[in-house]
Simulated scan of single mutants.
Amino acid sequence: MTILILFLIGRFLFSMIFIFTGITQLLKFNETVKYMSSLKVPFPTLSTLGSSIMALAGGGGIIYHSYCLYGAIAIILFLVPSTYFGHKFWSAPNKKEKNNQMQHFMKNIALTGGAIIIAVASLYIK
Results as ranks from 00 to 15, higher is better:
Gly71Asn: 03
Thr112Leu: 13
Met102Cys: 15
Phe89Tyr: 15
Lys126Ala: 05
Met1Asp: 08
Leu77Ile: 05
Leu6Thr: 03
Gln103Asp: 14
Met102Gln: 15
Ala74Gly: 04
Phe14Pro: 10
Phe7Asp: 13
Ile73Ser: 09
Phe85Asp: 11
Lys96Ala: 14
Val80Ser: 12
Ala72Trp: 04
Ala121Asp: 03
Tyr64Leu: 01
Ile3Phe: 09
Tyr124Pro: 05
Gln25Asp: 08
Leu77Thr: 04
Pro44Leu: 02
Leu56Gln: 03
Phe43Ser: 12
Ser47Gly: 03
Leu6Lys: 06
Ile53Tyr: 02
Asn94His: 12
Lys126Tyr: 08
Thr112His: 10
Met1Lys: 10
Ile75Ser: 04
Pro81Trp: 05
Tyr84Gln: 07
Ile75Phe: 05
Cys68Phe: 03
Tyr70Leu: 12
Met102Ile: 09
Lys88Ile: 00
Ile73Thr: 05
Ala110Ile: 10
Lys88Ala: 09
Met16Pro: 11
Val33Arg: 05
Ile3Thr: 08
Tyr67Asn: 07
Asn100Val: 08
Cys68Leu: 04
Phe29Met: 10
Asn100Pro: 10
Lys107Ala: 12
Phe12Glu: 02
Ala55Leu: 01
Ala55Val: 02
Tyr64Cys: 01
Ala115Arg: 04
Phe43Glu: 07
Ala121Glu: 05
Tyr70Ile: 02
His104Pro: 13
Glu97Asp: 13
Leu4Ala: 13
Ser52Arg: 01
Met16Gly: 09
Ile53Asp: 06
Ala55Asp: 01
Ile53His: 04
Lys96Leu: 14
Val80Tyr: 10
Ser91Arg: 13
Leu26Phe: 14
Ser47Tyr: 02
Asn30Ser: 13
Lys88Thr: 03
Pro81Val: 00
Ala119Thr: 01
Gly86Asp: 06
Phe43Arg: 09
Val33Glu: 05
Tyr124Glu: 06
